Every structure is written in structure tokens, then in C-alpha cells.
Simulated scan of single mutants.
Amino acid sequence: MLKLVVDNSNGNKKNMITCRNACDLFDYNTESCSIKNNVNVDSPYETSRCGHFLNKASMNYEELNSNFRFSLIGDEDDFLIDDEEIFHELIGTKASIKQSTYPLNPDFPSKRDDAKWFVSPDGQYGCWIINMSKKPMPLPINIEQAEKGWNKNVYKSPIPLHDHKTSLTLASKVAWVIDEEGYGQYCLLVNGKISTISSPKPYNWNKSK
């Protein structure tokens, strides 16, 4: 789930994988995503972050994929969860949380067997922890000391060391997901599925850089 990437290096936008040209959930009548609000259906970056992407049966995804290289975002760009708009809410009525127990306890279940609820030591935020790595992982002293990945808020740590700062209606659906290499980042859980990734891994990222 954390290997989806986007390439903006090729000028031929026809070859870009987008919701409009590649996803079965695209609604041609409304020209929008059929399950999410406020989605840029022509953005390959948003497509790469969406865990609901359904490849059209008539399209050879691998063939389309091979038509362009993957490179992503410059270091100066900031596609982080700190901006609440990075996560799109599913269509429907927002939950009314009158007696929220967040962050001590989640207001919504994860619907996953591998997710454990975590509360920050200062008690300011919480999230689900999903660890896909089988390697032992030491706990960094702080985020500055953590081994960084392809984004300043992607790093090796068994727990998140920074607040995701999402709204209360989404906070209990946020998860710190650690990939097979040990890099963690915030993602959004929808019905037990890792739905939205905050920082997709660039194809040409090299940890030696």
C-alpha cells in the first residue's frame, strides 16, 4: 500500500494514471469520484494516495504504468497531513461526536486485527499503529534523531513522534503505518482499509541521498 508513487516528469499527461482515465469509481455523469468529495480527478498524485483505486477492467495498468517514469515532489513541497485538506472525507453525514473519548480511546474501531491504539506520551494525540515491518525497530529520542525517509514526516519509528493535527471527526481513523523497510507515516483508515497515504514513496527515491 505504501509503494504507490506519482511521476510529474513526463510532459505527456495522457499517460498519467488518474481517477478520470483509470479508475472504475470515476462517475462520468458528474465528472467526479463516486465515493469521495472534493477529489481532483485529474491529479496523478491524488490517485497514487487513494487506497480505493479500482483499475478499469479494459485498461492494462502495467502497460499504462510503463509509459512514464516515477518521480515525485520536490523537497520544497509539503504534502503533509498537517494540512487537514490532504485527507478527503467519504460522502455522507459527518459523525456527531458528543461524547468523544479521543485521544485516550478511539471514537471509531479500526476494523483490523493488526491495528493497536496508541496515545502520545503527552496525551495530546492518538492514532492506530499498523506495523508491516518484521525488523526490530529502536525508538528514536525525538523526530530530529529519527532516520528520515523521502519526506520530513516519514521516518523510522515504532510510534509517531509528531501530531497529525486532524479534525476530531477524522482523528480516530488516522493510523501510523510502518512499511516493510521500517518507514512510518500517517495514513487514513476507511472501513479497515488503508485508504489515503500522506506521502507516497517516490519510485526513484534512494535512502543514500
Rank of each mutant, 00 (worst) to 15 (best):
D83L: 01
F53C: 03
N29D: 03
F108T: 09
L104K: 14
H88C: 12
K98C: 15
S34C: 01
K135G: 10
N55H: 01
D42I: 04
S48D: 06
R69P: 02
N105S: 11
S120A: 15
K148Q: 09
K135R: 09
I129D: 10
T93G: 12
N105A: 12
I35R: 13
V41I: 13
D82L: 00
S157P: 01
I159M: 00
H52Q: 02
K56E: 14
D114L: 02
V154E: 00
I97L: 09
M137P: 08
R112W: 15
S34F: 04
S71Y: 05
F79S: 02
L90P: 05
C50M: 10
I130W: 02
F53R: 07
K148A: 05
F79V: 03
W128E: 11
A95M: 02
G92D: 11
N29V: 03
V39S: 00
L54W: 11
Y28P: 07
D75W: 01
S58A: 07
M132I: 08
E147H: 11
L54K: 13
D75K: 00
F68D: 01
E63P: 07
R69G: 05
V154R: 00
S32K: 11
G149A: 08
D122S: 15
Y61I: 14
E31D: 10
P106K: 14
A95E: 06
W128H: 13
I143H: 14
N37A: 07
M132F: 09
G126K: 13
S110K: 08
D75L: 02
W150Q: 00
V119N: 08
E46R: 11
D122E: 11
L80W: 01
Q99R: 12
G51P: 09
V41L: 07
F108N: 00
E76P: 09
E84R: 01
I129Y: 11
H88E: 04
E144P: 08
E31T: 06
P121L: 07
H52D: 13
P158C: 09
F87H: 02
C33H: 08
D113L: 15
K152N: 10
K135T: 12
I141A: 14
Y125D: 03
D78L: 06
W150K: 04
K134L: 03
K152T: 09
V41N: 06
H88L: 11
L64T: 03
E147F: 06
S110M: 10
D77W: 12
I35Q: 14
D113A: 15
R49H: 09
E147V: 11
S66L: 06
S133N: 07
S120F: 06
T93K: 12
P160Q: 05
P106V: 10
K135V: 13
E144K: 15
K148C: 02
E85N: 05
D75P: 03
K134S: 05
K156I: 00
E63A: 04
P44Q: 14
I129A: 08
W117I: 10
N65R: 07
P44D: 15
M132E: 15
D42V: 04
N38K: 07
L80S: 03
Q145R: 13
W128I: 13
V119H: 05
I73M: 05
D77L: 05
S58T: 12
G126C: 11
A115Y: 07
R49L: 12
N29Q: 07
N67E: 15
Q124N: 14
I86E: 04
E85Y: 03
K116I: 12
Y102W: 13
D77Y: 12
K98M: 15
D78V: 04
P136L: 06
F79A: 00
